[in-house]
Design a protein around this nucleic acid. Sequence first.
DNA 1: TTGAAAGCGCTAACAT
DNA 2: ATGTTAGCGCTTTCAA
Lengths: 336, 336
Amino acid sequence: MTIKDIARLAGVSVSTVSRVLNHHPDVSEAIRAQVLAVVEEHHFIPNTAARRLVQPQGNTVGVIRSGNGDPFYAPIFSAMEEALRARGWRMCLRQLHYSDDELACAAELERAERLRGIILLGGRFDYSEAMAAPLGVPFVCCTHRNLFGDLSPDRYSSVAIDDEAAAWRAVEVLYALGHRSIALLVPSRQDHSPGELRFRGYCRALEAFGLPLAPERIAVSGSYSLADAYRATLALIDSGTPFTALFAVSDLMAAAAIRALHERGRPVPRDCSVIAIDGLELTEYTLPPLTTLVQPAAELGWQSVELMLDLLDGGAHRHILLTPELRAGASVAPPP
Amino acid sequence: MTIKDIARLAGVSVSTVSRVLNHHPDVSEAIRAQVLAVVEEHHFIPNTAARRLVQPQGNTVGVIRSGNGDPFYAPIFSAMEEALRARGWRMCLRQLHYSDDELACAAELERAERLRGIILLGGRFDYSEAMAAPLGVPFVCCTHRNLFGDLSPDRYSSVAIDDEAAAWRAVEVLYALGHRSIALLVPSRQDHSPGELRFRGYCRALEAFGLPLAPERIAVSGSYSLADAYRATLALIDSGTPFTALFAVSDLMAAAAIRALHERGRPVPRDCSVIAIDGLELTEYTLPPLTTLVQPAAELGWQSVELMLDLLDGGAHRHILLTPELRAGASVAPPP
DNA sequence: TTGAAAGCGCTAACAT
DNA sequence: ATGTTAGCGCTTTCAA
């Protein structure tokens, strides 16, 4: 079933069918109805491949999802998919692991699927001009910015929270409660990921509050995984370093940390407070409910689509910084 | 950049370039190398739209993801995406909410994207012949089977766990510990979702163990959401109905139930045991770590791809039943 | 082993 | 307002 068949059945030419299908105004109402009737009757849907072949501009946006497996990205991704579809755009997805090169993948996808633009969800912070060079279409970073590479800010767009500021706020909450020995749980001090920025925010906050930065109070887990966070927290506790509060850079890591603390006889928040950043829905129902800075997931998703469509419409690159909201759980309290 | 350009640059004809690109054997090594050199040099990737237009058979499998938002599906989906890509297939994704009609969406997607097959992730259990009729390509259901509709089993394939048996096992674990008043937390008794099957398994198990089926011990939450599960559990507790254990039909619901129990002064597992089905990674790190029947997520994902490719290869429809594994957490104990 | 040419289904000039 | 027709980039007969 092609438009040729529809044309024949409706007693019109293919171009008329094409016009009807593409909502062109210059078709008489009578003919339009006539054609649509046949289309409906046969459940006809035009061949997308042919359409894309002939239309220089497609309507597909690529989404590269890095750090796959992290539940934090799920609602952001869903929001993106919905926003894209609502605006009449197709999405082409590629899921990557943290170690994969998302920019190389993006370039490949762009050419293979004739993408109009690319949204990078959860990528890295260290793009160079050279890495971005193969990309022929605009791209927007969601949940990250290029803070470490030399790629100019007017070469890409982004939506993210201010990780450093968020970390500062987390530490501030603990400080305001009276904590002076605040430990940190982070995957790495210098992996150019959000963790590094949150580590920075932690350092700056301590400094601002006149607290010493004690390296022995920093648990480096090596990854964002629950298992690694759990192990690193146990090691921190077992090292004997005193601390009355812990700032975990992600909800997931905080959950693992709380279990570790509990198992070493340090109930949260009575013996130790825990705060984090991300705001998974589930951690609102854990014991204790986690106090955390919630990232506006849905907004991150649709803002990145908004940014993309604006770009495709000739708009300039922009960088949006969203503010996380403190979700008061029950994992923080004054020091014992 | 098209194969025409490549042909010109390599000093050969377009058909030769096409042959090289498609790994046809009848090309001399010299020419092949010559062409590949030009292809490499220009990072040429053939236009997929043109390719798909001309090839009667595409290489795209559609994935319809229902019940979007449930974190349980995430690892299954990732496994699918990876399996598909590893075998050289493209994936076209559509995310749906529980209320959407996945079969109608599938039919539309099939024609718009020229799909070869469709995988339904997390759909319903009540397909009729009429609903499946518009589908012109084979489909496989992942995590569900058609237990309520009249669609014949040889019209589709499936991979899932035996929900009823899993529920039975969950109840059995509680029974073996000595529990005789076992409550149930379920979204609905008759929504044709996995919950209904697990409800059935619960009923059958009680019957087999000679335990009465007390309707007042069944908390119906209305949905799979944390918030609803939390409310329903509070209502169950507040109703005064005695119970020493609770079987929640999903991990997520169990987490919410544990918090509710805790807040009403019934610590888990000392005062009340809780068991569930699904096996989210996170619930292994909650307090207490959840005892649950873990669904083999990765296997569900790649088995559904396996089934699909087998079907596309002329194979017959099959129905695979996987067995969940008991993950011993710390949320169950003998009754107080 | 290689090349020439037809045609996949569609859109968009251009004609009428 | 409607029809005719030339491609879009590719694969695949069919010839050489």
